[in-house]
Design a protein around this nucleic acid. Sequence first.
RNA 1: GCCCCCAUCGUCUAGUGGACUAGGAUACUGGCCUCUCACGCCAGAGACACGGGUUCGAAUCCCGUUGGGGGCGCCA
Length: 464
Amino acid sequence: MSVVTRFPPSPTGHLHLGGARTALFNFLFARHNKGKFILRFEDTDKERSREEYVESIKEALLWLGLNWDEGPYFQSKRLDLYQEFAKGLYEEGKAYYCECSKEELEAKKKAQMEKGLKPRYDGTCREKGLSPGPGRALRIKIPEDISEILFEDLLRGKIVFPPDEVDDFIIFRSDGTPTYQFAVVIDDITMGITHVIRGDDHISNTPKQLMIYKALGAKPPAFAHIPMVLGPDGARLSKRHGARSILEYREEGYLPQAVVNYLARLGWGYGDQEYFTLEELIEKFDLARVNLSPARFDPEKMLAFNAYWIKTLDTAEILKNLKPFLKNYPLERYSEEYLIAILEGVKPRVKTLKEMAEMIDFYLLEEIEPDENAREKYLTEKIKPLFVKLISDMDSLSFENEKKLEEEFRALAEESGVKLKELAQAVRVALTGKTISPPLFEVMKLLGKERVKRRLERALNFIT
RNA sequence: GCCCCCAUCGUCUAGUGGACUAGGAUACUGGCCUCUCACGCCAGAGACACGGGUUCGAAUCCCGUUGGGGGCGCCA
């Protein structure tokens, strides 16, 4: 039997790290087993579901490289199907209509909780034999003779629930829409899902779903409940830590490779290996190596992974990802080769693409505005004569050869009684406007004689 | 309250009864490299939650305690 997995987000918010990791694991498991990965939107909550979230979730998935093989399906477009299954259960006497009001149910639940009991439906309408009608919800009729409810989790082994775990819960709302519990089961059955890989917050939902499978006489899929992703403080992921949209990370200058790699390592390990490409993950991913305990999201480590992939990936690939951050520069003036040469020098110096774009601005702009503090500190009277000499000797400098250029600078510094360090910093500020930059002689080479000369001349004005 | 899941450095993890003086990554500290800042390299500090068992032997198996997480919707 070939493997079929699915990722079923509800379009009530953006895709965040937790959801992305669930999607990733489903994707990896399917691809590893040469199976199919299905995308399905669980949008039965009409109040909260929004089209814009459908789009942003799809975009985020695609950006991460998690292409689905089938779908996206929408539960909202499959109502007929759910109704058909529900009708079947009702006609077989495996479900019944209930006319209890929400208020009544709420009050009963509260009373039960106060008595220390597990809140469960008391069966008021169970034997009333009600027919379908307005304001009536359909409840599943849980057999009285069930003993314990159990299933075999792929990661955790046998999980057992006491028989009173499940009550006659609602499978179809009085407004004619299916509840989550019912829709997932029908979808998973009809889509031929073989493996349900989801957060362990769904463990306690599983008994309910198993009762639906049983009522339908269908064989449940295999379940693998993966641990949840927690915020840095150990609390559930919320807006203020990790629950930001995946797309926000893209905007902050993260590489999809880094996010995927980091996410894969949250709750999964492969010996001492830390860095994986998507292809490698597909090859090596294995449910048996998934951890059981919840993992905290550590922004610092994800940043470090991003820095690693920025300096490791092909520069052409980096450039492709960097371009959106270069909107404000006259890119058309520069060749692809030139841009790549520039990037080589900054790759090991930045942690995000955003930082990268900022660091290379002096290469792309015609004029730069040296930082005020840097100017005061390094563009001093003392180095003024050196600048003058550099400008007049410009034509004799070995721009094309970084090593030689460095020697020439050393000689100049020595004969003027200045440390190379002082000279270099002054020139760096004049050329880049910053005290931090790629190696100076690389900068000069890439900037070219003309721009170097102009910037040194301009810097002289700042000194006087 | 009831039910379920989980437990190795701060964090992510390796570890599947002897190879553990518990390994790697990240973060942190010190050093080297050096025209700046990074990268890189070297070194350091840092963990098996606790208590009982089982066993010749336990981070690894069992039980309990504690701690953390999740669920108990006409949300998903």
